[in-house]
């Protein structure tokens, strides 16, 4: 397997950054890790999760769709899309890699979202296997192998070595391009680490939750009508924290921003089904209560999405919502209450 010494990592990064834009998790001033554009001196953070997921790389928190101008009665639509530079995201955990598939199912289906596709085409994902999963992790529940993540290239960090294994053509080409960086070594340490990690994963509290009944059409109405939604959502404050830290939440809003120089930027931005105005229309709002909104979010992830996408759940078990929810309400509590757990 291709390897790289930890001591050479920065050199490797510098080389990548010469040709592409490189993004990786770096510890921020609060001690947590966040993706950022690599600059000389940045240390790769091996922290288990970044506060925000990696979805921002493809589905941007906010992005300009096009510009508009109005001159008296005339309207002009200006295409502002630009060619995107090739970029590399390094160190994406298995759960976040999986989330890209989930977003693909939405954004690459007809009609293809060109903004998303553009970035997807130009991004290369180097994933990173987990070795110290947290007790709030439950990716295994969604058939994600955190010890062998997907991506264009999968990677492991065992002690002071990094191991790389390209999975896609893009990955092959990349490895070929940077081949002088790597040496070829035995992959036994990787196998050993995988085994140890899987051993931990088995002991994690949520990996064996029962998903029976979710994601099937004939139980849809039954789950929808369950009385538990009321209690689960009773203290939901309707903020968007869960949706904004979630790697699979994909909803957006389209709005106009008046730049002030006579032009309007029509942009799209993340939206949250937890917000009261999410489904507000001129005349009415079909989701009037926080319970309805709360239910929508989890129904979407656990029931609607899998029905539409061959049983794949709209959750990757990253555990971010368990950490971030201001009122400690999360998908695990919902699965427990709604499923047969």
């Amino acid at each position: 397997m291709l390897t790289l010494n930890a001591s050479q990592l920065d050199e490797f990064f510098a080389l990548i950054e010469k040709k592409r834009e490189l993004y990786l998790p770096v510890e921020n001033k609060t001690g947590k890790s966040e993706y950022k554009r690599w600059v000389e001196g940045d240390k790769y953070s091996t922290a288990l999760r970044t506060v925000k997921s990696a979805k921002n790389f493809f589905f941007a928190k906010s992005e300009n769709l096009y510009d508009l101008k109005m001159d008296h009665k005339n309207v002009e639509v200006i295409d502002t899309r630009e060619d995107i530079k090739e970029f590399v995201i390094f160190g994406v955990r298995g759960c976040d890699v999986k989330s890209f598939d989930i977003l693909d199912n939405v954004y690459l289906q007809d009609p293809v979202d060109t903004y998303y596709k553009n970035r997807r085409d130009h991004g290369l994902v180097i994933s990173m296997a987990c070795s110290k999963p947290a007790t709030t992790c439950f990716c295994a529940l969604f058939d994600i192998d955190a010890t062998s993540p997907n991506g264009d290239i999968q990677a492991w960090n065992v002690e002071d070595k990094f191991y790389f294994n390209p999975l896609t053509e893009k990955g092959d080409a990349f490895v070929e391009e940077f081949k002088e960086c790597f040496t070829d070594e035995d992959s036994k340490p990787v196998e050993k680490q995988k085994e140890e990690t899987l051993n931990i994963i088995e002991r994690l509290p949520f990996v064996n939750l029962n998903m029976e009944g979710f994601g099937v059409e004939d139980k849809l109405k039954a789950i929808f009508d369950r009385p538990e939604w009321e209690d689960l959502s009773s203290t939901c404050i309707g903020c968007g924290t869960c949706t904004y830290v979630c790697p699979t939440c994909q909803c957006f809003d389209i709005k106009d921003f008046n730049v002030g120089d006579g032009s309007i930027k029509r942009f799209r931005c993340w939206d949250s089904c937890m917000y009261s105005d999410f489904t507000q229309m001129a005349a009415a709002n079909p989701r009037l209560t926080q319970t309805a909104r709360f239910r929508q979010r989890f129904m979407h992830k656990l029931v609607y999405y899998p029905i539409k996408n061959e049983g794949i759940y709209g959750c990757v078990g990253c555990g971010r919502c368990l950490v971030s929810c201001p009122v400690q309400m999360n998908i695990v509590k919902v699965i427990k209450a709604m499923g047969d757990n």
Binding site: G240, T241, V245
Partner: peptide
Amino acid sequence: IGCNACRDICPACTCEKCVFDNRDSGVENK
């Protein structure tokens, strides 16, 4: 990240309709 958790948890932020959620306020924008 613009999640509004700070506002929604705040015991002083209790407006029936927050200006940031109010289409008529002129500052509403996600």
